[in-house]
Design a binder for these strands. Structure first.
Lengths: 214, 214
DNA sequence: GTCTATATAGCGATAGAC
DNA sequence: GTCTATCGCTATATAGAC
């Protein structure tokens, strides 16, 4: 990624800052479009032409910002990951029960998906996967979130308020899976319920289960 | 789809049957490969060349059996749908509680995914989606399953053993979503648990919920 | 129906002018 | 850094011989 913020020394700091902000704003616009498209159709079906058209710049200009389609998608997913890190840290700082922290994160990720900002995860052997695994920013974010969530899960199980039949890793993976659960899209397409209602229903089925509590 | 089983009248019925069986066997082999690839990498990433290579025939020969890549994938998904219809009918015939029928179907679809035979569902605007919606076999199967599952769900809710916070359609969509739940793949890749253990865990989180029953 | 060889199109990526 | 124009590759689909 060649996002060098102008390497030469500048006479006017204000002008440099302005240019840098313009650049950053454009890259933010690009990344926002990419996340929408990644969420809507996935990495394979998304084309670089689409991204360029949606942002309103030429495809060649896109490649000045990002070296490849994989890098482009990776940058977008890193952005989401960083937003998630911030949210998780905020939850961590609150003095509430671990289970409630877990619920807050689950609801937040689902809301993100309903807003079309959660990229659908790439299949095992996608070229994107290799790029993600090689991205320090992405892996660091993933590890931080995994560690924090893992600690919450263990605490909640010690408190006796998490399903004891499930090992912590199964709970963790389930939370990740719920972040891209297609049931959200199904219910949204049915147009029968508001986003809030959908969140309530999916949270209930996730934490309370489909079967009735006895 | 031009699967015409030889339109001219034949002198020897046994020979015709034999040829038809050979044809059917080949098409079954094709469809099996397609389902594996659809499950592994999805429709977009799957190439017709891959399918041809895996089956061991030329690509042009594939196009004699199926008019397009979409038709090819559609035929594979219809096959899975028909297997599901048969399983659902078998459950229907059993004299067990509706909730147990629902659980049997859920477990069966998850097992199918663990075996790599459950195609991952296409994104909204995929070209495959239009083909599926236009396929009578596919839509008929989907409707039959929807109707039967819907009846079970209502019965189970009347019996008071299904989460009352969820409208029937939310339960139905959740069951469909669990059939392609990525958590199965995650847990399988971790190599920590057997397929049976994975099924037990995911069934528990699906029906009992992540949180503990109080 | 099966093959080899090829047409056609879309997409990722780049060249080169400004 | 932005553009237009184009390269090069890959993948769907087809032509035509056998």
């Amino acid at each position: 990624m060649q996002t060098q913020t102008s390497s030469t020394a500048m006479p006017s700091p204000t002008k440099k800052s302005f240019k840098a902000k313009m650049l950053e704003a454009r890259e933010d616009a690009i990344i926002q479009s990419v996340n929408r498209l990644l969420s809507e159709k996935g990495f394979d079906a998304m084309t670089v032409d689409e991204v360029a058209n949606e942002v309103g710049i030429a495809k060649a200009s896109l490649y000045k910002h990002f070296a490849s389609k994989e890098d482009l998608a990776c940058a977008a997913m890193v952005k989401v990951m960083q937003k998630a890190q911030i949210f998780v840290r905020d939850c961590q700082a609150q003095s509430i029960a671990p289970l409630d922290k877990i619920k807050q994160v689950a609801r937040w990720t689902m809301a993100l998906q309903l807003q079309g900002q959660m990229p659908s995860l790439p299949s095992q052997n996608s070229s994107l996967r290799a790029t993600l695994m090689a991205s320090k920013d992405y892996m660091d974010g993933l590890m931080e979130i995994t560690d924090v969530l893992g600690a919450w899960i263990e605490s909640a199980q010690n408190d006796g308020c998490l399903n004891a039949e499930l090992p912590p890793i199964a709970v963790l993976y389930t939370l990740f899976a719920r972040a891209c659960d297609p049931v959200l899209e199904f219910l949204q397409m049915s147009e029968l319920y508001s986003d809030e209602q959908i969140l309530d229903m999916v949270m209930s089925s996730c934490f309370n289960g489909l079967a009735i509590k006895k």
